[in-house]
């Protein structure tokens, strides 16, 4: 922090004040005048896909966006494990400095209190069931794959912290990476049916809002997730199409990526075994 003392610190402070004034003045100008723009159209049409507007926004209108965002999490897991030592590469032909690796954390599980020891397993099981509940109800509620993945991996972390390496939720290396691969790969491939049928990648052929596909495809992809909305005005049927499937793939991906990060940071990485 030597650099930020004395004259330099004062200059930096003045610069930060200028930036803050600029940002605040622009936010102040924008207050009360935010333009709804295209979102009005989105909201007006959202009910055609899923009963929950958020699910429609995230997985249908901006579904491809969410795919790349999901890939950010996948890459995060990949890079974190790489830094720990998974897949470090060296040139065959020349000697280099040996790669930096991190040691596994030390676990002292013998000091666990009785309460923690007996409540740990039920808590982890409850967390996992909660995650499953969230991902299955995603098309009707605001929840979804991200949340499910985070909850499930927190159950994994809880078990690992309480019981050490031989915890009840014992994920193997390949298993975790496989789950991530199924998740992201599955999400990416869910765009394929729409691409083959209409030419638009990730067109939701189950919901078929713009009537672009033959009714047989609409039935195959739409019917398994058909919902009946019983309202005062009568009973309405709608189907979110591939949105629930995307949600499940998303959950798999997040479990794979965050699970890999936890695994690598807890146990380090060695290429032997498994």
């Amino acid at each position: 922090m030597e650099e930020l003392k004395g004259k330099r610190g004062i200059i930096a402070l003045i610069a930060l004040i200028i930036i803050t004034i600029g940002l605040l003045s622009s936010l102040e100008k924008l207050t009360g005048r935010v333009n709804p723009g295209i979102s009005e159209v989105y909201n007006a049409l959202a009910y055609l896909v899923a009963p929950n507007n958020l699910a429609t926004w995230v997985y249908d209108w901006r579904g491809f966006d969410t795919l790349i965002e999901t890939a950010v999490i996948y890459v995060g897991g990949l890079v974190s494990a790489l830094v720990i030592g998974r897949g470090v590469v060296q040139m065959k032909k020349c000697k280099q400095e040996s790669p930096v690796t991190s040691k596994p954390l030390e676990f002292r599980v013998e000091s666990l209190t009785v309460i923690l020891e007996y409540l740990g397993i039920p808590a982890a099981i409850l967390l996992i069931s909660y995650g499953i509940m969230i991902v299955t109800g995603s098309s009707t509620s605001g929840g979804g794959g991200f949340q499910c993945g985070v909850i499930m991996t927190s159950a994994y972390l809880l078990a690992a912290i309480l019981y050490g390496k031989n915890n009840p939720i014992k994920f193997g290396k390949r298993f975790i990476i496989g789950i991530g691969a199924i998740g992201l790969g599955g999400y990416a491939l869910l765009g394929l049916p729409g691409y083959l049928a209409t030419g638009y990648w990730q067109y939701n052929i189950g919901a078929d809002v713009w009537s672009l596909v033959p009714s047989i495809l609409h039935t195959i992809f739409g019917d398994p997730f058909r919902l009946s909305l019983i309202l005062k005005e009568g009973v309405f049927y709608s189907t979110p199409g591939i949105v629930p499937l995307i949600n499940i793939a998303e959950a798999f991906n997040v479990i794979g990526a965050i699970g890999l990060i936890y695994f690598a940071f807890l146990y380090g990485w060695s290429d032997e075994g498994e």
Binding site: I68, A71, V72, V75, G76, L78, V79, L82, V83, G85, G87, V88, V89, Q90, Q96, E97, S98, P99, V100, T101
Partner: peptide, 18 residues
């Protein structure tokens, strides 16, 4: 841009040197 910068980090770190 976000995913791009993350991947740049990974490629730089892949050689494993300090």
């Amino acid at each position: 841009v976000e995913i791009g910068s993350l991947i740049v980090v990974g490629i730089a770190a892949a050689s494993g040197t300090s």
